[in-house]
Design a binder for these strands. Sequence first.
DNA 1: GTTTAGGCTTTG
Length: 762
Amino acid sequence: MPVQLLKIIKGKSEPPLPSHLQREDLKHLHAGLDYTNKYFQGVVILSYPQTKLGDGTDFFKIVLQDNSCARIDSINILIYGKMADDCAKVIRNGDTCIVAGFKLAKSPTAREDGRHGCHLEVSEEAGSAIYIYAQPSTTTASETASVSVAPKYAYTPLNHLKDGTIVNLYGIVKFFKPPYVSKGTDYCSVVTLVDQSNAKLTCTLFNGNLDSLPKIYKIGDIVRFHRIKIREYNGQMQGITSSGFASLTFDGTVGTPVVPRTSSKAYTFMDEEEKTVEELRIWAASNLPISGPAAKLSGVRPMLFFDLTCQLVGKAKVDGSSFLLKVWDGTKCPYPTWRIPVEARDLEGEKSLLHRLRNLTVDILAYDNHVQLAKSLKIGSFLRIYSIHTKQASAENEDVSHVEFHLHGGTCYGRGIGVLPESHPDVKELKTFLESVELADSQSVDSMSSLELDSTCNSIAVLTDHQDLSNTELKTIRNSRAPQQYRIRAKLKTFKPQKLYQSVKLHCSKCNSLQEVPNGDTFDLILQECAVTPSNPELHSTSWYESVMWTTQDQKQRKITIHFVKHDEMLLYPEDTLLMIEGGTSKEIWKLTRRFKCVIPVRSTKNDLELLDLSAPFLLQGKVKYYGCKQCSTLKPIKNLSSLAAEPRPSWEPTEIAQALGIEPLQYVFIMKFTLVDGTGALNAYLFDYEKFFQIPASEILSNNFLQQKMQMTMNTLSPPGRKLDDLPWLECFIKSYNITDGNKQQVYYQIFDTTVAEDVV
DNA sequence: GTTTAGGCTTTG
């Protein structure tokens, strides 16, 4: 059969290719050689319309690209006669094609098309054969019902795109405009991609159906486009939707589940695709700028542009060119915000909710091209509004200025509105948070928001232990000798760091050193280095642990070894089990922490398992990485863990594990500098806090968004941004003075102690 | 069959 469709099942061709055929690379194709038993394989990147030659012979020309990534990576295939007709019926761009029994001839167009100097000629008469690994149609579900078929799509790196081709590709979103109403008949979305080749591609995507455009929610998302047309525009390659265009979108965060977002009912997505996404994520994490934490209304400052994830509570038409959206995100904007007057009958939304949340919602005015989309939004839906402008202004009848929220017309900087699905993790998180805020709100006595209370109440009680002490003025404290303890009443004029996540450090209580929390990349790097050393089989399955080894399914075929520390309940309660792992990635390790109590990364030496470098966590439990002090730790044999395991129900406390391993554990701590004033003077007091002050464990804040929001709100309450000194609330707290000798200079420092921010303040 | 927009710029 000269033209045959093949399938790939479990990585093997089905039916198999004739065994006498051998593959030949593009670079080995030279005129004059014998190719009787050779075949060439490539991906169809271009096919010309089928025509008839002067003598009536059918003729069909396609271009195949190999995966060599060489300068010349494509070749023309000329197909004659019945074979041309057969091929034209089935071959589509993106198919993988095998050509056997070809004749090699000089290509007359090589100079113009930049392809291989020769072309391949095939026909039934010459005894040629063509095998095709076809892509399934993405439009009908029935065709993908033949499940065992693994269709072979080829993906073009962004630096190998050629004008006039239709390709499949992957990319990381570097810039995007959420779908907006174009001046034509369709929605439009502009997406700029990058990949490991560092090449960029801007794609202009059109579709009359909003749902058919890629569901990109933030920069860093990863997309897979099928059948996108490549054109040259202004000297650069440009992508544009072609018929049959389909897309998948993935979250770009390393370690999150690889779940495609798409409107396609039928699509292929398997291990290989998952691998590609994960590789792009890892590349992006180390090669592209990381975005900071998402903005919240509590973090809003005047005169900036930001993206807001929020829920729509109300909407109203204002005039022909602007539309009002009332939204909230559960946090309170620290500034007075503007209220856009609208007719009550124009305001859509649940009246009681609008009233109840009146101090937490903000008015956003959407202009011009955004009006149509804004109008169509459903009350209660979750939105991400991109590039909102905050503007400070004051009306004539106002004493203080307010902040206005504008979504200006146009789409530059990706300005626009995106609707997030309920399944989006950010929405799930926001929902939980909003519910907790509403609950707290409904519980407050006078149905006044607790957040509103503190802004009207002028003095904040910061609860302390030593209620017997009386207040001392700051001036008196500054003029006194250290060390002493005081109760003070003061205002928090300013504090550092302003970026709250920067306040978390690691502290060694033995040598009193402080260090930054290593970032995730350091851990990945150490794991990568360790993975080079193979696990020593002689150390597997001893008296106190059971070892299991396996090979990863990906191309790298990595070996991972897990040593389960034995104890009675091991099989009954995986959630109580401690395990040691060799050769895993941080993602795999995090996955294990979800199932098991403790995970200790180790590596093999000749004689024993040992911990990794102490720049890596010695233990992972829950969402927390536990680190040890490099100076103060004297590592003990890993076998010491067996004595802990011998206990009937081991608690696996990090401190106990650290002790058994000879590790001096580092503790997570908040370090902040508070500048306090009280009218008699000012002083800087340090906050050194594991948990007590904010009622938030410092160890958990880096992995918990709720806690980060809680902390931000606490700081906004203690020091509302943009407020004059007179309007700041009073705080009561304890400070102690102490001496630090630096050379022969002695200096007095102050530290906040025994102070807790009262529950009802936040 | 094939317009729309074509990011590198924001402001009522």
